[in-house]
Nucleic acid binder design. Structure first.
Length: 107
DNA sequence: CATGTGACTCCCG
DNA sequence: TCGGGAGCCACAT
């Protein structure tokens, strides 16, 4: 079998997934916060790209990731999907945004 | 090795 | 509250 070009990838991706898996139900984190948790400070955009690539059937709580303002940062139809999942966990959105002071998860 | 990209963030008006 | 612009990081080409 040879191969596996394996672009540097996996490392950062797995770290992000591991960090995301730690976010408990009913709590949220920001892209930047998750990046920091993954040991990639300031790589918020990378987190976004990584989450965007997750399969629809992933078990990871991708919906618990919001932008620094507590707002859902993805376009439709993803927006509605994320909003529904959040509300299903008791995370309330007021005027389209989550009160981070109340739901942000900080270990 | 150079260039383009984005589910980001911060700052300013 | 909203929009524009600069900064940033790692990945894709």
């Amino acid at each position: 079998m040879v191969q596996k070009p394996m672009s540097a990838n996996n490392d950062a991706t797995s770290r992000i997934c591991l960090a995301l898996a730690q976010v408990p139900t009913g709590r949220v984190v920001t892209y930047g916060g998750l990046a920091e948790m993954a040991g990639l400070p300031r790589a918020a955009r990378l987190v976004g790209q990584t989450l965007r690539k997750l399969p629809r059937d992933t078990t990871l709580p991708w919906h618990r990731v919001l932008n620094a303002q507590g707002r859902i940062s993805i376009p439709e139809p993803g927006y509605q999907r994320q909003k529904s999942r959040l509300e299903a966990e008791g995370i309330v959105l007021i005027h389209g945004k989550v009160d981070l002071e109340r739901f942000l998860w900080q270990p």
